[in-house]
């Protein structure tokens, strides 16, 4: 957890420090208000399912994408078991998911993940982009869900699966700052940058909001 948070904080700060107004050709500092407005809109619109034309043109992909990502954020953060652990360690916990919802979301993540992997194998325009790294990322993303579900249904040795689940979870957290998984945070940075670009340079200051 520490590696993940510190690693990502460093990458996040380095991203913004590494933006260069002249090479990127965006006057970030000269027009902060327009930049912030553009960045916020660019992030917000893309966080809403079917909120952009891009999402709307590929509805099945969008449904699977949000199905996976909503679960991937909600289950680790709000699962009752995780929060009990958190409570016992630091005396603090978040709101928790009911058991039925937690089960549903976990299966949803696995189902949507399987669909997205299948999509990668089937569609030529996605297959051509796919590398072994992409499958590795899927492996470390889905492993905590699968091991968690096996443990939850108490198939085989609970202790073994729980330990494996914890190990996979740790692996995922460590992978976040060092692999493509960094998009967990860098999504916001990259979207903010393009939002600033449109907000400052490409029409925002002409009073035209980008029709994402």
């Amino acid at each position: 957890m520490g590696v993940c948070i510190i690693g990502m904080a460093v990458r996040f700060v380095r991203y913004f420090l590494g933006l260069n107004w002249q090479l990127d050709r965006v006057a970030y500092r000269a027009h902060p208000a327009a930049g912030i407005k553009g960045a916020a809109r660019s992030i917000y619109k893309w966080l809403i399912p079917f909120g952009t034309r891009g999402w709307r043109t590929q509805p099945v992909m969008t449904a699977a994408f949000f199905g996976f990502h909503v679960s991937a954020v909600a289950v680790p953060l709000f699962l009752a078991g995780h929060n009990l652990f958190l409570e016992s360690k630091i005396g603090f916990s978040l709101i928790t998911l009911g058991p039925a919802l937690a089960d549903f979301l976990s299966w949803l993540a696995v189902g949507c993940g399987a669909f997205l992997i299948l999509r990668r194998l089937v569609l030529p325009e996605v297959r051509i982009l796919t590398t072994w790294d992409d499958y590795f990322i899927w492996f470390i993303a889905l492993a905590p869900f699968i091991t968690g579900l096996v443990a939850r249904y108490q198939m085989g040795s609970y202790g073994f699966w729980l330990n494996l689940h914890i190990f996979c979870g740790e692996l995922l957290l460590i992978a976040i700052p060092f692999t493509k998984m960094s998009h967990v945070f860098l999504f916001f940075a990259s979207r903010a940058q393009l939002g600033m670009d449109f907000g400052i340079k490409r029409g925002g200051m002409k009073g035209t909001k980008m029709a994402w």
Binding site: R14, L19, L23, E125, V126, L129, T131, A189, S190
Partner: peptide
């Protein structure tokens, strides 16, 4: 700089750009 590097790195290879 970081903008281009990050773009190359985090591309999820999702292919959503294809039809655009």
């Amino acid at each position: 700089k970081t903008r281009l590097k990050t773009w190359l790195e985090i591309c999820a290879h999702c292919g959503m750009c294809a039809d655009s």
